[in-house]
């Protein structure tokens, strides 16, 4: 009951209070949109990390592919923007099939093989000039449309779209997590034989999670392309899309549903509004420090840490 109530309060706050309070301030809304974009990648990344047991350093590949895929479809094939965002996700999902051989690799090897893929995609985006216009980038990518008189192409419109996308991403994650497939995936890292003898095909499940994670990341990239209306390889395939998502997910707690979202909002907003004001250059130093500190002091992340603190205090109150 508490859970539903707090969810309703958060949703009401996100859809009503934030726009009412900051709707007129494009600067603030712009930064919140960026934070939510990172939150979406962080959730998709954490899904692969938590369910698949795979830490990827290459999610910027899927972000970039989704961005370029959607932008090119809208520009060259004249697809309306919302369907082309969906198509961008699908393209990223399909492209992730190329990276599937890496699923055989263990922990750090997988992480860095994905990084190599991301680098390859970035170089290809620069080199395939006939398609991507190379380093020159794509200009005037169609913006989000006006529907029923509401301009989704405005900063505030973008906010509503990205907010909804992030919530849908969390919803998809939640659905998968609670299906038998999600349960089996969660159990797989620690109990491989146990899952095998009851009939779990680990490879196929991992591959499926990779595709879904790539699809969701691609959607965020596609949204971003139509939101900023401009793309170039070094932006769309920038490693910091992965870096920020990792920091956010690890900070919030990548094994929890809302940890990556909370992590992205806290980390990015504090970074932009506080650290950046204090030290205009090199403010990401603090993000690196946060990441290191969280691994050392609370490896499961902020949300689980808060939850255990809360439980402890509730327990202390109940039994003085």
């Amino acid at each position: 009951m508490m859970k539903y109530l707090s969810l309703i309060i958060i949703l009401a706050g996100a859809y009503l209070a934030v726009p009412l309070q900051f709707g007129g301030n494009d600067y603030v809304i712009g930064i919140v949109v960026s934070a939510l974009t990172i939150a979406g990648i962080a959730v998709a990344w954490a899904m692969l990390g938590n369910l698949g047991g795979m830490i990827s350093f290459g999610h910027s590949a899927f972000f970039g592919v989704g961005a370029y895929g959607s932008a090119l479809l809208a520009m060259n094939a004249g697809l309306p923007v919302f369907p082309s965002i969906l198509a961008g996700g699908v393209i990223a999902g399909v492209v992730s099939i190329l990276t599937m051989p890496t699923l055989r690799l263990r922990g750090p090897y997988f992480a860095l093989a994905m990084l190599a893929f991301a680098e390859i995609f970035r170089i290809l985006a620069i080199e395939m000039r006939w398609l991507t216009n190379g380093s020159g980038g794509l200009l005037s990518i169609p913006r989000l449309p006006t529907v029923f008189g509401f301009d989704f192409g405005s900063r505030l419109g973008g906010y509503f779209v990205v907010l909804t996308l992030v919530l849908l991403t969390v919803f998809v994650y939640w659905l998968i997590r609670n299906r038998p497939e999600g349960l089996a995936l969660r159990a797989m890292h620690d109990s491989e034989d146990a899952t095998l003898v009851v009939g779990v095909n680990a490879t196929r499940l991992k591959a499926a999670v990779l595709v879904v994670s790539a699809f969701l990341t691609g959607i965020m990239g596609a949204f971003n392309a139509h939101y900023i209306n401009f793309l170039e390889p070094d932006y769309a395939f920038n490693g910091s899309w992965t870096t920020l998502a990792i920091v956010a997910a690890i900070f919030g707690g990548y094994k929890t549903l809302w940890g990556p979202v909370a992590g992205a909002l806290i980390v990015y907003l504090v970074d932009q509004f506080v650290f950046k004001a204090i030290m205009p250059s090199g403010h990401q130093l603090i993000l690196g420090g946060l990441l290191a500190a969280i691994v050392i002091f609370s490896p499961s992340g902020l949300l689980p840490w808060l939850a255990s603190r809360f439980r402890k205090e509730a327990g202390d109150a109940a039994h003085p």
């Binding site: 038998p180 349960l183 034989d193 899952t195 009939g199």
Partner: peptide
């Protein structure tokens, strides 16, 4: 069906979820 000598519960899952996974995939 196979029961191991050293019990191998599926970690991170509840008892019921263990059975759900076994049933779904088995």
């Amino acid at each position: 069906g196979r029961a191991f000598q050293v019990p191998q519960p599926m970690h991170e899952l509840t008892v019921r979820e263990n059975l759900i996974v076994a049933q779904h995939f088995g």
